[in-house]
Every structure is written in C-alpha cells, then in structure tokens.
Simulated scan of single mutants.
Amino acid sequence: MHMNSAPHLLSEDRADFERILDDVLRNAHDRPDLTSVGERLNTEQLRTMALNATAPITTAAAAEYEHYRKIREESRSPGPSVPVRDSVLEPDASEPTGSGAGLTAVVTVLLPVLGGTAAVIFLLVGYLLKALSRPPAFADSLVAVGWFFGAVTAIGILAAATGLLITALRNSSTQLPAEEPTGGELPDEVARAREAWRHALLERGLLPFLRAALADPSTDPAAPPPRSIKHLPKIGYSRPDFTSPDEGATTGQRPSFTSPDFTSPDFGGPDHPPE
C-alpha cells in the first residue's frame, strides 16, 4: 500500500490558484491547445472541475510550493535585534541624572495642581470677604495672592505641555522603523519563489488538467474530478489485492468417510461358534 500526499494549500495561496485559473480560462482561445473550450465544456464547468481537483493539480508543483512557503516563513520571522545606540539607552555621564531628573518631573506635575488649588482657595476667600458690608483690610491681599497662584498654575501647565512635547519628539526620533515590508510588496527572494511556484502550477498543473479534460469525451462536469489525468500524479491509496483461500486451488473430489463396520454381538461363547 502506498500513498501520494498532496501539499496543503494555505488559504492565503488559494487566491493565487484561482487567479491563475481564471486568467487561463479567460485567455483560453489564445492558446492552441485550449481552443476547444466552449464546444463541449464551457469555462464555468472547467473552473468547477479544476477547483474540485485542487489537490492533484497543486501536487504537480509541490516542490516549488514548499520552497516558496519556506522562504516566505523565513522572511516573516523576526530577525536579530538591531543594536540601539548607547546614547539612546544610556544617559550621558556629564548630564545630571538620578534625583535631579526625578525632582524636575515631580515639580512639573505638582506645580499646576498645587498652584491651581491655592489660587481657588485664596480667590474664593478673598472675594467672600470683600462681599461683606465692612470687608477687612487683608481681603484685597488674599485676592492678589489668589491671582498670583493662578499665574503660577498657568505657567506650570505650559511647562508641563512643553516637556511632554519634547519627550514625544525625542522618542519618535529614536524609534526604529519596522523591518517587515508594507504595501503588499514582497522581498526579492520571496517574489522569485512565488513566481517559480505560479509558473510550475500553470505549466505542470493547470494546463495539463484542462487539456486532459477537453480531450476526454467521456468527461462529466458534474462527476468527481478525474483521478488518472496525464502528467498529474494519482492521489489516494492503492488497495492490495487479496485472494480467497479457495481461489486458484484445484477442485477435486471431497474426501469421503465411511462408517466402520460393526458386527452384531451374536456369539454364545466357545460352544457356539459365530455363524
């Protein structure tokens, strides 16, 4: 028993298979060996037959397809990490680090919060005191202090926004571009492997299948795909031939058995000899 296995056509490659098939059928009358398309089998019937026989057709280009898949998977696998400059990962020794940078970040964040809170409190209390019939003398001072903290809050917000903008620009300048190609373009090696597979699929798979289907007058479009097409391997299992134990044996007479002859116990001893 033996088996010829067809390669598993990935779903992303089935579109290529159908595209090549449609192109061949669309330009069938430009090929001398396919000029009979439409006489007995039309393009839609041939397309259905070819789609049902995807496995044997793709087997004809199995080597090219496996090479194409291998090259494509290698191109998609992440490559070795790109070393980043030390100046990006490690700060310069001459620049202040550690607690200085942390203190600056804390002040930048807390200054707008604390300044805004103080401004609201001083302004609220100052204007409430000024609303009295006889406002105290320090009411104007509270209002002035509140406006001062309001200005500090505005300056803190502006400084924080500037710092965020500078950080974003610095990070974008040190970001590494993606290595994988975009826009649907393939690397040269992958493109060559794909083209080799498509060519083998056309010349050794689709065209022989279509020629065999058109040349066979007994081909039924509604029947399962033919399994013995020229230039295409036969897919499936070969059943071993088993013979019956009685097959081929020389037929003779069956053995017969005879029952033993038993004599009647008609004897009377030594005085009576048997009859």
Rank of each mutant, 00 (worst) to 15 (best):
K234E: 12
D86K: 12
R194H: 09
L128C: 01
L103K: 06
Q175N: 11
R134P: 00
H2L: 13
R69A: 08
A15F: 08
L186H: 05
F257S: 08
L201I: 07
I166V: 15
S75M: 03
T35Q: 12
S94M: 03
P233H: 13
H199I: 07
T174S: 14
S264F: 06
A118S: 09
W147L: 06
E203V: 15
R19I: 02
A249G: 12
L201R: 08
P181L: 15
E275M: 07
G150D: 02
F209A: 15
T174N: 15
K70I: 03
P80G: 07
R170D: 15
G150P: 00
V107I: 14
P56F: 10
E189K: 07
A154S: 09
L41C: 08
F242L: 11
P217Y: 07
D30L: 12
R227I: 03
E12Q: 14
M49V: 00
H67A: 15
S173K: 13
P96C: 01
L206N: 07
P187D: 06
P135A: 01
E179M: 08
H2A: 12
E180L: 13
D16S: 11
P260H: 05
L21A: 09
N52W: 06
T104M: 07
P91H: 04
D33C: 10
N42S: 11
D30R: 09
L142K: 00
I71L: 15
E12F: 09
T182C: 01
S36M: 12
D188F: 02
F138P: 12
A168E: 06
T104Q: 13
S238A: 13
A101F: 02
T182P: 00
I57T: 05
V120N: 05
T162C: 04
R194T: 04
T43P: 06
G146M: 03
A105D: 09
D261T: 14
P245A: 10
P225G: 12
F257Y: 12
H199Q: 13
T243I: 07
A213F: 00
N52T: 09
I121C: 00
E73P: 00
A193S: 14
E74V: 04
L232F: 07
E179T: 15
G205S: 09
I235V: 14
S99L: 14
S256M: 10
G102Y: 06
T108V: 05
A6N: 02
T97H: 10
W147E: 01
A93G: 01
L21F: 11
G102E: 11
L186V: 02
Q175T: 15
D220V: 03
T251I: 14
G183T: 03
A55G: 06
T59A: 14
S87E: 15
A160M: 11
K234R: 14
V125H: 04
L142P: 01
L214N: 08
E95D: 07
